[in-house]
Design a protein around this nucleic acid. Sequence first.
RNA 1: GGGGACGUAGCGUAGCUGGCUUAACGCGAUAGAUUGUCGAUCUAUAGAUCGCGGGUUCGAAUCCCGUCGUCCCCG
Length: 373
Amino acid sequence: MFKITHKDKHTNARVGVLETLHGTVETPEFMPVGTQATVKALSNEEVKYCGAQIILGNTYHLYLRPGMDVIKNAGGLHKFMSWDDPILTDSGGFQIFSLATLMKAKEEGVEFKSHVDGSKHFLTPEDVVRLQFELGSDIMMVLDECLHYPCPKDKAGRSLELTNKWAVRSKEEVARAGERCEVKSERLLFGIVQGSTYPDLRKESAEELVCIGFDGYAIGGLSVGEPKDLMYEMLENSVRYLPVDKPRYAMGIGMPHDFFDAIEMGVDMFDCVVPTRNGRNGAAYTNEGRLIIRNGKYSRDLRPLSESCDCLVCKNYSRSYIRHLFNTEEILGLRLTSLHNVYFYVNLLKRIRASIKNGTFLELKKEFKEKVF
RNA sequence: GGGGACGUAGCGUAGCUGGCUUAACGCGAUAGAUUGUCGAUCUAUAGAUCGCGGGUUCGAAUCCCGUCGUCCCCG
């Protein structure tokens, strides 16, 4: 189900192919975030135009709205949103601990109040797996507890114990679902490494997850406010204990230059809200660095967002025009920057894959090190 | 011709029974933040000789006189 096709000679970077029910994904890949069954501001046709092979959905959000009955009625998430390619669904762990009002995280599961209407809910790790089965997810994530930074070690340790117990139960639930013949076994389940900012906890987390055995391993609890070097240190202290023949997924990462360091460590998958969220706020990511289109200096700039970009936005629209759209709060403005950013991100990963294949990964990395994002 | 109201940053306003105002607020502008979502939010900066002139006073956006402008009412 995951096959490594190319390895970089000088680093741990690799190119692989991940098989899912809805098709294959060549890695390393960036997965646009489509929390509420939409990559914000973009149509599926546009997301595909960008070259995205797989997108994210979010169990927490979709469970609350529109609700599982609506999605089941449509025949699953793929049919509901008209996306035929792979979908990875986040478990909602991160959202329950950040968006919702957390009531109680106990052994059995997690009690929380909806951020939408304040209603009370209780979900077990088994529930979350079942919900993802109902969504028809290609890659499911286990329910985890995502901690804030900074977090005292004893608390992080206790949390990790809980997350690992939940991981075991999540896997068992997948097995039960398979026995019920509800679905084919091709649905993948990823475990999530936690452990806050403590190397030994990260090691313990990774090793226990490997012991349980998952189709892939995510590294969670990063980019939650910790310093950048600490983020990389924890990423490295997680990845090194993971099996080389399984996909690794750095959750929530990142900025364009983050990919190089992570891929160098052997990370295969990424998701991040930056291209879409910051796109909606007027930041364009380009080969030349970051450009904030609202800046006055672009008011008469007839160049595209990036002169080295061949996306349809850069082929057809000027900075001057897009800035005008932002200043007048026209919806097209944030659509164009979102489209450009997703195109840039997805194609950056495509370039990285090509560079690993032809042995120029470190050269490409060096080139990007000098850019300012 | 007579009477009244009002003139304070680009816009809209507060302050106006004198000192606590080195003139405040909202919008806008300018710049920054944003990492398993946020058309959100937050932060910072610039911008006003308080229509103009004179007077009273230790001290005036604030009181008085004149003047210009805008709006309303009566003839």
